[in-house]
Design a protein around this nucleic acid. Sequence first.
DNA 1: GCCATTCGCTACGCTCCGTAGCGTTGCGGC
DNA 2: GCCGCAACGCTACGGAGCGTAGCGAATGGC
Lengths: 210, 210
Amino acid sequence: MTTTRSKHEPQNAPPLARSERTRIAILDATRELLAEGGVATLTVEGVAARAGVAKTTIYRRWRGKDELALAVLVDMVESVTSTPDLGDARRELIRFVGKAVKILNSTLMGRVMQGLVSDLATDPELADAFRARVVTLRIDETRRVVDRGVARGELRPDIDIELAHELLFGPVYYRLLLSGGPLEGRFAEQIVDALMPGLLVGKTTRRRRA
Amino acid sequence: MTTTRSKHEPQNAPPLARSERTRIAILDATRELLAEGGVATLTVEGVAARAGVAKTTIYRRWRGKDELALAVLVDMVESVTSTPDLGDARRELIRFVGKAVKILNSTLMGRVMQGLVSDLATDPELADAFRARVVTLRIDETRRVVDRGVARGELRPDIDIELAHELLFGPVYYRLLLSGGPLEGRFAEQIVDALMPGLLVGKTTRRRRA
DNA sequence: GCCATTCGCTACGCTCCGTAGCGTTGCGGC
DNA sequence: GCCGCAACGCTACGGAGCGTAGCGAATGGC
């Protein structure tokens, strides 16, 4: 989230180096084109044209359109702020998942994701980068929220964090990518409420860990 | 699952028409190529070459590689048998989800899915076809299993079927497409057991419906 | 055996990929 | 203010695939 310079920054900031300017121009152009047609219609030549940049310049920095799209994605994901302590595990989880739902729906991150998925299966390096920069962030945040809930005595202490993370976000991406349902409103709440009974302390101890 | 003729069929079956033979050759070639490199590396020209068929012949039947891949996918999905009555909702759900996990993992359907996702976002007709032929099947089957559980008095009668379907299969596809974890073993069981406490009758009636 | 359908084949024009070579510009150090 | 290097622009490739057109040949229903 640092490509386009904020207008509220001090105006006396040092002028950007040429290298940095082209970088911004390329990422901005990529962002625009992604918003218009997704990764499917994204072409390196198109980006070069819109950015007013030579195609070779792009290939000097990124290996291809996949890395380019990932760069934009990461740029957006890393702006995610951590979930505040709301004093209630359920509310925190809803806030957490709801934020992802909203971002996927209101920004072009959803569209970028749609176009990127197939490439993740093809390009191992891309997949590694995605998991290290996106999935890991989500898991870590899940851990923080759950740990707070455990500390409060709300949630079971034996929760499998990675599994919980998949249960929380799996439905979100399923709807985005496959079922095509509306990504909005109470969806995050519905997901969390479906999982809560199994997360709370007490109750019968079936053989579950999520 | 009707492209390749079974060897156990009566040998006196009428010889296939030329039109049908080419159809089979094309779909078989597509299947093989999908197994080798996924949809990403699938090309109409490659299919034509392997099938011993002219490229134009393929374009006369399908609009492009996407429709071709979908045809193969549908061919596999429609062979899915319904979940038998096991007398226990939890076991039935595990069997149901587990079957999807196994198919995605052991056949090339997982790979086809990976390559097809991005195209679903781009091509509305393809998405419609996929939802009508795949998602709908899953929802219907979910309804059957849940209804049996409700009839037995195990499950709550106010379960949102479509939501339940997303909660069950979302994590599966999330792992396949995004997180990259192993698609096997107890995963189906973990998913179902995480959701079961919210599906069973009795308990406190929070504001949940899944 | 007739004749419409279906298929094979060749040949396009097009877009995009990814790379190479070389001239040009900007930018920091001195 | 000058100089040298790094970064960039530009042109030109060869290649893969796409999707279409035109036409002749094989097929199979009637």
